[in-house]
Measured scan of single mutants.
Amino acid sequence: HHGSGALAALHADGPHAGLPVTRSDARVLIFNDWEERKRSEPWLRLDMSDKAIFRRYPHLR
């Protein structure tokens, strides 16, 4: 199991509170979210491209 239990660094406060600090933090969040959702949506594709990251977390651009 590759990303399970990996912890992402999140901004503690300010405008980005609760959001990932780096792209690799964002990838951890996206992976964990996908892993949760694919139980009920097995067709869901995992997209951890930069484009997917920016779409979801525009502050990382």
Rank of each mutant, 00 (worst) to 15 (best):
H1I: 15
H1Q: 11
H1T: 11
H1G: 11
H1Y: 11
H2M: 11
H2E: 09
H2Y: 12
G3F: 13
G3Q: 15
G3S: 10
G3A: 11
G3K: 13
G3H: 12
S4W: 09
S4A: 10
S4L: 12
S4C: 15
G5Y: 07
G5Q: 15
G5H: 12
G5A: 13
A6S: 11
A6I: 13
A6K: 14
A6C: 15
A6Y: 12
L7S: 14
L7H: 11
L7Y: 08
L7W: 07
A8P: 12
A8K: 15
A8V: 13
A8T: 05
A9H: 14
A9I: 12
A9K: 14
A9G: 10
A9R: 14
L10V: 10
L10Q: 13
H11Y: 11
H11P: 03
H11I: 07
H11D: 03
H11L: 06
H11R: 04
H11G: 04
A12K: 12
A12Y: 07
A12P: 10
A12I: 11
A12D: 08
D13M: 07
D13G: 08
D13Q: 09
D13C: 11
D13K: 15
D13F: 08
G14S: 03
G14A: 04
G14D: 03
G14H: 03
G14E: 03
G14K: 03
P15K: 06
P15F: 04
P15A: 12
P15S: 05
P15W: 05
P15Q: 06
H16Q: 09
H16M: 09
H16F: 14
H16E: 05
H16D: 08
H16S: 06
A17M: 10
A17I: 11
A17F: 08
G18Q: 06
G18T: 03
G18R: 04
G18W: 04
G18P: 02
L19H: 03
L19W: 04
P20M: 01
P20A: 00
P20I: 15
P20N: 15
V21N: 04
V21Q: 07
V21S: 09
V21T: 05
V21L: 14
V21K: 10
V21Y: 04
T22A: 06
T22R: 06
R23W: 08
R23E: 06
R23I: 15
R23D: 06
R23A: 10
S24L: 09
S24I: 08
D25A: 06
D25S: 11
D25Y: 06
D25P: 00
D25L: 02
D25V: 15
A26K: 00
A26N: 00
R27T: 03
R27W: 04
R27L: 07
R27P: 00
R27N: 02
V28R: 11
V28T: 08
V28E: 04
V28K: 12
L29V: 09
L29H: 03
L29D: 01
L29K: 03
L29C: 07
L29W: 02
I30W: 01
I30Q: 01
F31E: 04
F31I: 06
F31D: 15
N32T: 08
N32F: 10
N32S: 08
N32W: 13
N32C: 12
N32E: 12
D33M: 06
D33R: 06
D33P: 01
W34E: 01
W34N: 00
W34I: 01
W34M: 01
W34T: 15
W34D: 14
W34F: 07
E35G: 05
E35D: 15
E35C: 15
E36L: 12
E36N: 10
E36T: 10
E36D: 09
R37S: 05
R37V: 03
R37E: 02
K38V: 14
K38C: 13
K38D: 02
R39W: 10
R39I: 12
R39G: 09
R39S: 11
R39V: 11
S40C: 14
S40H: 10
S40M: 09
S40W: 08
S40K: 13
S40T: 13
E41I: 06
E41G: 02
E41N: 08
P42H: 09
W43V: 05
W43E: 12
W43H: 12
W43R: 09
W43D: 13
W43T: 10
L44V: 07
L44T: 06
L44G: 03
L44Q: 07
L44E: 07
L44W: 05
L44Y: 09
R45K: 15
R45D: 08
R45G: 08
R45T: 12
R45F: 06
L46N: 01
L46H: 02
L46A: 02
L46I: 04
D47V: 03
D47H: 02
D47T: 02
M48T: 10
M48A: 04
M48N: 03
M48W: 15
S49R: 04
S49W: 02
S49N: 02
S49L: 02
D50W: 15
D50Q: 05
D50Y: 06
D50H: 07
K51I: 11
K51T: 11
K51V: 14
K51R: 09
K51W: 09
K51L: 09
K51G: 08
K51F: 12
K51M: 09
A52Q: 06
A52P: 02
A52R: 03
A52I: 06
A52L: 05
I53M: 04
I53R: 01
I53E: 01
F54Q: 05
F54T: 08
F54S: 07
R55L: 14
R55W: 07
R56K: 13
Y57G: 01
P58I: 02
P58F: 00
P58L: 01
P58H: 02
P58G: 01
H59I: 00
H59T: 09
H59K: 00
H59E: 01
L60W: 00
L60A: 00
L60T: 00
L60M: 02
L60I: 02
L60V: 00
R61I: 10
R61G: 08
